[in-house]
Design a protein around this nucleic acid. Structure first.
Lengths: 202, 202
DNA sequence: GCTTCGAACTTTAGAGTTGAAGTCTTCAGC
DNA sequence: GCTGAAGACTTCAACTCTAAAGTTCGAAGC
């Protein structure tokens, strides 16, 4: 190893020059404003108003999912399992659905559903049994324990959600809910073409 | 096999009785209104106004991600890869970040980042090289091709997003952006406690 | 009744993620 | 300089999801 006597010191200096003010750890990602400004620099046609809505929507959802994940983890379940519990509760008493129907509602493949039900059955959250009227079909039924877990998760979630919306008064909450519902209907009703463009169904 | 002569016919009748009106295929999941009504039946303390906002947010985001996925697929990349391209573009010229920094910005583990960069480097979307000033570090740099891909994806996405917000006038878009930003700030600034409750930092 | 088609679910193989352990480089003290 | 500790990334094993093939049962035609 033939090195110049100060090569090491030089490297250190160069490195420090390249990142001089890193003493205070920065946030995990740039702020929304910085992000949109960067997009505009690189893509002139961007409508900043539209981008603000869309980016905020995406970030908000990611943060919320992290928060839900922390909550469900304290109950010993995952967000994925909570989704299944929710679908069964929404289906109403007697809280029974087939794997295929569950998969459709959760937007999963039937194969993934099989595995989730395996896990949840072994944890006692659901029962899996064959339909005696049609032995090809399977019935997934919420257990009492599963229903309790849903309720606990719901209690935690509703506290978090109330905290989240704390700064909005009732009028603002109503307006927000209505606007989001309109957007949702637009995505759900319109048939996107090959490029994903939404075509009107007027 | 000793069977009653009409056992099969009886089973058919029973099965039909248990699902009489399934001729018309139902939508994949219950409507937002049905979902909230079901929650309220099972959990009295629920605030339907809050739940409407939260559920609409979640559904909207899921649908949007499906739409983005269809678009990026037409470009031969995945949503995951698009996320990396976005982070690099947002970082600004010369479009270089380390794997660790990228992982933080995307909310991934460093291990997952390593694999993503493997793929994207083999597809020519990024270059991976060692930092000569500090040979522990790695620099991921956007290639020209990667930058083009980002631009194409952006063009598609902005059309979709404009379609999505089509029914909102400029005033509504502005208000929606502001409200969502307020919610986002609430999640980002507040430190959630063990149960995920947001504690004020006033 | 027998056979074939179709429906509902499961199994398998492959891709992507996480958490933990491992490797290599740099930093700090002696 | 040498040595141990810390940092940045990678590797490994286990897990979850998708797509496709496989299995089992029921329905319809002969």
């Amino acid at each position: 190893m033939t090195k110049d006597f100060n090569a090491n010191a030089l490297r250190v200096i160069l490195r420090r020059m390249s990142e001089p003010s890193d003493a205070v750890p920065r946030p995990a990602e740039p702020s929304l404003e910085e992000q949109i400004a960067a997009y505009q620099r690189e893509f002139q046609d961007l409508d900043p108003q539209v981008e603000k809505v869309v980016s905020a929507l995406q970030r908000l959802n990611r943060r919320m999912n992290v928060a839900y994940g922390r909550q469900t983890a304290t109950l010993g379940i995952s967000n994925a399992e909570w989704e299944v519990l929710k679908a069964l509760v929404v289906s109403g008493a007697p809280y029974r659905l087939g794997p295929g129907e569950l998969a459709k509602r959760l937007g999963l493949t039937p194969a993934a559903m099989t595995h989730r039900i395996d896990r949840m059955a072994s944890e006692g959250l659901v029962n899996r049994e064959r339909d005696e009227n049609n032995r090809v079909r399977v019935i997934v039924e919420l257990t009492t324990e599963g229903r309790e877990k849903w309720l606990e998760a719901m209690r935690l979630a509703s506290v978090f959600e109330e905290d989240l919306l704390q700064d909005l008064d009732s009028r603002e909450r109503g307006l927000l809910g209505d606007v989001l519902t309109r957007l949702l209907r637009r995505v759900e009703d319109a048939q996107p073409d090959a490029e994903g463009r939404l075509t009107d169904l007027d």
